[in-house]
């Protein structure tokens, strides 16, 4: 960076670049230039200009022809020999890389301890503590729920933020064609109509079945979210079920009918995700503030096995479920070029 320009011009790299650029035509060009210089003093100005122009055209044409000839030669060579060479090299490299990777993986597997041994590294004091004292410390019967939302809740907070950030960037990227008043432009509407040409419109069978199924799916999703600390499930899986139910509803009835429910607009999405994540962050910072081990957090754990137990896990599950459900739905509607 600190190199001066004059130094750069005379450096080896710059000379190499100049040589690459000018190539073998340089000598000819010098000759032409000297001829031009000889022709210059005698002629009149127009003739001189004409001569210079024609000389330049000729020169450029010759350069182009040279270049094309070289390219043709290269191409024919690569068609005859080069491609075969590259193909062989490619095959050889692919087989070699495969063998190398297989070798490395097999070595790694053979170095691992046997499955199910008592002295394996996974059977350490951490997992022993989770299993032995998990119910007592977190109040969650579901050990996995207790782990991801209590012992390792900071990790889950990051995951929820990843979802939120992804949804925000999709919003930024796909909600573009809006005019000053926030309404979609003509182009966007045309593109959407073009996209929907082959969609099934008002399919009665799908509508009836989705009317039957969507409430059950939503209820099931809510059940999975609320029972995250009691049985298998939790915020992510329950939120995914609810989001899938909403997507099914949109597929069956179209965005215009679903869009009438303002519950699933962009504004509500923003408020819900923001509130859920803010609540999550506040709850987590509270528990960090209280010592980060939940032993003295003054939140009653309740009886393990009851619905209202396990302290903060239930509200955190609800927050995560809301974020996941709304994010899934908004992704779907945005990528469908919908009026989200």
């Amino acid at each position: 960076m600190a190199r001066l320009k004059s130094n750069y011009e005379s450096s080896a790299w710059a000379r190499f670049l100049r040589w690459m650029k000018n190539g073998s035509g340089r000598m000819e060009r010098d000759m032409v230039r000297s001829l031009e210089a000889e022709a210059l003093p005698n002629g009149r100005s127009e003739e001189r200009q004409q001569a210079i122009d024609s000389a330049r055209e000729e020169r450029e044409k010759r350069d182009r022809d040279n270049e094309r000839a070289i390219l043709d030669k290269l191409q024919s060579w690569s068609a005859r020999r080069g491609s075969r060479l590259v193909r062989y090299a490619y095959r050889f490299a692919a087989v070699a890389i495969c063998l190398a990777v297989i070798y490395v993986l097999l070595i790694a597997v053979s170095e691992e301890p046997m499955f199910g041994q008592a002295d394996n590294p996974v059977n350490n004091e951490v997992s022993a503590r989770y299993i032995e004292k998990g119910v007592q410390e977190t109040g969650a019967v579901n050990i996995v729920g207790g782990m991801i939302l209590d012992y390792r809740a900071f990790d889950t907070l990051g995951e929820s933020h990843v979802l939120f950030i992804a949804a925000c960037s999709v919003l930024l990227l796909l909600r573009m064609n809006l005019d000053k008043n926030g309404r979609p432009t003509r182009e966007k509407l045309d593109a959407e109509a073009d996209d929907r040409k082959y969609e099934p419109h008002n399919d009665v069978i799908l509508q009836k079945v989705s009317n039957l199924i969507v409430p059950c799916l939503l209820l099931f999703g809510i059940y999975v979210v609320l029972n995250g600390h009691l049985s298998a499930g939790g915020g992510f899986s329950g939120g995914a079920i609810m989001g899938a139910a909403l997507i099914l509803y949109v597929n069956a009835h179209g965005l215009t009918k679903a869009g009438k429910h303002k519950l699933f607009g962009a504004t509500v999405f923003k408020y819900v995700t923001f509130c859920a994540l803010a609540f999550y962050a506040l709850a987590k910072s509270y528990s960090f503030f209280m010592g980060a081990n939940h032993l003295d957090s003054h939140i009653p754990l309740g009886t393990p096995g009851n619905l209202l137990s396990a302290g903060l896990i239930l509200p955190l599950n609800i927050a995560v479920g809301a974020v996941v459900a709304w994010t899934m739905y908004s992704f779907y509607t945005l990528f469908r070029k919908g009026d989200f």
Partner: peptide
């Protein structure tokens, strides 16, 4: 039985 015939129907229609 509710969902699978409906999805086949939609695929056929498409």
């Amino acid at each position: 039985w509710l969902t699978s015939p409906v999805s086949s129907h939609l695929i056929g229609r498409l």
